[in-house]
């Protein structure tokens, strides 16, 4: 029993030490963002601020607010549209399989692993031609299209758990593809929509490559603006940390309140569902 107590203690100590390591960046981000610039000296980096100073938040907010709103206008329609498309595709590819549908599914999946650099040059040419370059609708379109594979995968795996018998008996009762979707699938999809919605929200909010190549200045989402903050000549670390926190806040809040669904999405996204 004594060995057990010792090993339990060691286990907890290790877990606490590792937790501190994982929390350290957040601690530093918070304390740095709350200090005035003259307190951001090297020796004081790890110390708590002498007094709370919110001026860096004010500055970060002034600089980032328009881009924050751009991200909101981008992420909400893009998440909704791609979840809807994914639900339709997942429904057909799990409950209305036809010859070759599994291969179509696999071919779709490839799209979620490609480095987006490999489609970027044609994509930008296309967006210019279509008049969507440097617009939020253009970015929405891009995220919906390249979100198809992952949302389809998540919904297909999700619908696989709906018993085949339910669909069959509905068919026997004369229900068609629409009715079954409307009356059986949709009501059972609430969790699916939450998981996919959270996943897409987080990914689109955090995305950088499309954002930085497709939009310029006033159209840019928050992550590009945050990156630009550090591009300025004198790096104001307190403002930058405040900006990082502002930029991270929406996805952090989603994680704090709906973390369970976020992790579900994470596991569903690794193909074998």
């Amino acid at each position: 029993m004594a060995i057990r107590t010792v090993s339990r203690t060691v286990l907890y100590l290790l877990l606490i030490a590792l937790s501190l390591f994982y929390l350290m960046p957040v601690y530093v981000m918070l304390i740095t963002s709350l200090k005035p610039l003259d307190q951001i000296s090297l020796s004081e980096m790890w110390q708590l601020p002498h007094s709370l100073d919110l001026s860096s938040y004010q500055l970060a907010f002034e600089k980032l607010a328009p881009n924050f709103m751009n991200s909101i206008y981008l992420v909400i329609p893009a998440t909704l549209l791609s979840a809807l498309l994914g639900s339709l595709n997942g429904y057909v590819l799990s409950k209305w399989k036809f010859r070759g549908s599994d291969w179509i599914f696999t071919a779709l999946l490839f799209g979620m692993f490609i480095p987006y650099q490999s489609i970027l040059i044609p994509l930008i040419q296309f967006l210019r031609e279509a008049g969507l370059y440097n617009t939020i609708p253009g970015l929405i379109f891009v995220h919906v299209v390249y979100g198809i594979p992952i949302t389809t995968l998540m919904f297909r795996n999700f619908y696989a758990s709906i018993p085949e018998e339910m669909i069959e008996s509905a068919k026997i009762d004369g229900a068609g593809i629409f009715k079954i979707y409307q009356h059986i699938i949709i009501p059972l999809s609430i969790t699916g929509f939450v998981v996919v919605g959270i996943w897409q929200f987080t990914n689109i909010w955090n995305e950088f490559l499309f954002a930085v190549t497709i939009t310029t200045s006033s159209q840019q989402p928050i992550m590009v603006a945050l990156q630009n903050l550090s591009g300025s000549q004198i790096v104001q670390w307190n403002v930058q940390m405040a900006g990082a926190l502002l930029a991270a806040l929406p996805t952090l809040l989603v994680y704090i309140f709906l973390g369970k669904f976020f992790v579900k999405g994470l596991l569903a996204g690794s193909v074998k569902g």
Binding site: M223, L226, A248
Partner: peptide
């Protein structure tokens, strides 16, 4: 940390 952006 997985909920954060790589940029952050």
């Amino acid at each position: 940390p997985m909920a954060l952006s790589f940029v952050v």
